[in-house]
Design a protein around this nucleic acid. Structure first.
Lengths: 101, 101
DNA sequence: TTTACTATTACGTTATACGATGTAACGTTG
DNA sequence: CAACGTTACATCGTATAACGTAATAGTAAA
């Protein structure tokens, strides 16, 4: 089966960040930086966020200030789970072939 | 440490394919399809191959027929190992946050 | 002779990288 | 407290290049 709509790394990181709890963009950025030492620029971050929202994998919650908190949707959770499993399948074969597993 | 290189999934699959043994393009394609059920079109495949070659992660070996076999270089092996470990770090946090680990 | 193998090339789409811009809130120092 | 700098937060714009799809083409095999 051919894979459609393959979201790459920044999107994946965002979804994983939201898998823990709802967060706004800036907080997502900090979470990713803290956990992986990867710093996403604003263009990369908010660009990916809006694509994920358009895809229905995350959704905005209303807020009083200018923060825009997002949460992972049901679909997003399913999608993320599938993605991760698929990726783990790939990496585990990789490790095996590298002789590291 | 900001991530520079942008090799995404197809490139990773190719490197993993070559981690097992040397293969030419078409054989790489078949290997990937067999193992992951992911079919790369020729543009995707050969495009990624030439970028990987340019980056020094794979290199061509000479051949008698029209096949062009590639092998993983030393650098490619190092790069692939790093990448996989990084990705595993990401996915394992993902699984944890999804409550699946 | 038709199908499978093998590769090249071209082109459009779009995610990502990078950065400029803008505003609000907060803290610090004179 | 006023002025200043800094951090928090987001939007928008553009360039690059990876990816998807497909057209082309030649050789080997069935």
């Amino acid at each position: 089966m051919v894979k459609k709509n393959r979201f790459s790394e920044p999107s994946l990181l965002i979804l994983i960040s939201l898998a823990e709890k709802k967060r706004h963009g800036y907080a997502i950025m900090e979470d990713i930086e803290k956990n992986y030492d990867i710093k996403l620029g604003p263009g990369t971050l908010y660009g990916a966020i809006s694509r994920l929202e358009k895809a229905g994998y995350i959704s905005v919650l209303e807020s009083q200030d200018r923060k825009k908190p997002y949460k992972l949707t049901e679909e997003g959770q399913i999608y993320l789970t599938e993605q991760i499993k698929e990726i783990q399948k790939v990496t585990s074969l990789g490790m095996k072939r590298l002789g590291l597993a």
